[in-house]
Design a protein around this nucleic acid. Structure first.
Lengths: 236, 236
DNA sequence: AACGACAACTTGTATATACAAGTTTTATTT
DNA sequence: AAATAAAACTTGTATATACAAGTTGTCGTT
């Protein structure tokens, strides 16, 4: 009955899931902290730590004297400020097709970012995905992860799961921050085919360097997005 | 000896200031949590709450067994996550040219956002600016502000000042959050001229709805950005 | 000199408790 | 019936304590 996850994270995962799945809807009040204590059999500081996280990520807002108000599904955790595509779009309409399955490679580049010695030595888990919203190709992303103590990673199937969900649940690796560059560009030959657009079609490009809670493990990701029908949305 | 600020915020403010002023530099270790307890005469949970915040905002990173490592001054909380263009680029190279001086108008639209009755009745302060980085036009922005108790706003000169600085200092209006949509588009005739690019040139477009501390006062802004030479940069 | 065990650090998690401060509901008074 | 007061909630802050887990340096042995 004991997992590797600390209790406050378990509670966080449960509440987060419940919000995403609509057990609690926007505007609803979560059970009070004391009720949550009773439900999960932990003390209030532990509950509060879980709630703090949900507040930080924009899932809930708290009001003294009133309670924890559900803010809705994670607009604020969108692609612009955090983590991945899945949480930005919502899982419903998002289908993922793996173009290149996770495979070990040597680094050839990390987009516009520079790598450390250690990262270069470790080699690189490389993958490419094409993601469809409502049946149409909207995102194409290339991800590079240093091969540092992520056993069996290349054999994991995660067609429609979020890469970051897997890292969090299977490896206890959490995104703690990062940097990104955003620009508008044109498709190029590869994207032209993938998105089925003409060569001059404007495309959004994001180069991201994503730091994790595991020291030395930085994820590099490049995302191209056809924003003709679906603009990226985010809160701040 | 008692301020309105809770102790953990006081400690947070002090440490944050010290990092910004270079008392601690990038890579330095902060005093250990127990040392900080002694210094500030509080208990460890209080110190940890202050440190949690610094971690969240990217000032420090923590490593179990080692300590709290200063991550350096956070690079511009750029255009992607907060407020205006000025803070994103840095004031040095940014020159602003007013295309349309602040003037009262009726709302015709608010980009892709919907307006409330009250906002429509109030009318709209409208302005257009073109902003140059290193002498070249990079940003073109259109701003709409509901005309709600902002006396003499249309007569303010703010060539190179941040719009948000003026709102904060002259009207005590602070940005508390907002939402935005980002997409890639092509110039169009107007931008073609302003940016001096051809018609097919990809341009970044941001539609933003910015909430302020004054109830009912929401600022609507649309920013076009030529990212050919300058990509937008942001941390999260 | 090199290795290994251990002690002395560090941060991470969790409990138990207390009171302050804000909100809502209920009961009381006018 | 309406205004007021009190009670019963809610979250916010803070302390004191304990042990787990990761890192670093030291000492002793080989």
């Amino acid at each position: 009955m004991d997992s590797a996850l600390p209790q406050y994270k378990k509670v966080y995962e449960i509440l987060r899931k419940h919000i995403l799945e609509g057990v609690y809807n926007e505007g609803d009040l979560l059970p009070s902290e004391n009720e949550l204590c009773a439900i999960h059999k932990v003390t209030r500081p532990t509950i509060r730590k879980a709630l703090d996280r949900l507040v930080n990520e924009g899932y809930i807002k708290k009001q003294q004297g009133k309670g924890s108000i559900v803010a809705g599904k994670p607009k604020g955790v969108g692609i612009l400020s955090l983590t991945g595509t899945t949480s930005a779009v919502g899982q419903e309409n998002l289908i993922t097709k793996i173009i290149i399955k996770p495979e070990l490679r040597q680094w050839d580049h990390a987009f516009s970012f520079t790598l450390s010695e250690r990262e270069i030595e470790a080699g690189c888990i490389y993958l490419e995905r094409l993601r469809f919203v409502d049946g149409k190709p909207v995102f194409f992303d290339t991800t590079m992860i240093p091969n540092l103590n992520l056993p069996r990673f290349t054999s994991i199937k995660f067609e429609n799961k979020s890469l970051f969900d897997i890292l969090r649940t299977k490896y206890q690796v959490e995104v703690i921050g990062g940097e990104q560059k955003i620009l508008a560009t044109t498709g190029g030959e590869k994207l032209q085919k993938l998105f089925n657009v003409d060569a001059a079609h404007p495309v959004l490009q994001l180069d991201r360097k994503i730091e994790t809670s595991r020291i030395g493990l930085t994820i590099y990701s490049q995302v191209f997005c056809n924003t003709a029908k679906y603009a990226l949305y985010g809160t701040f």
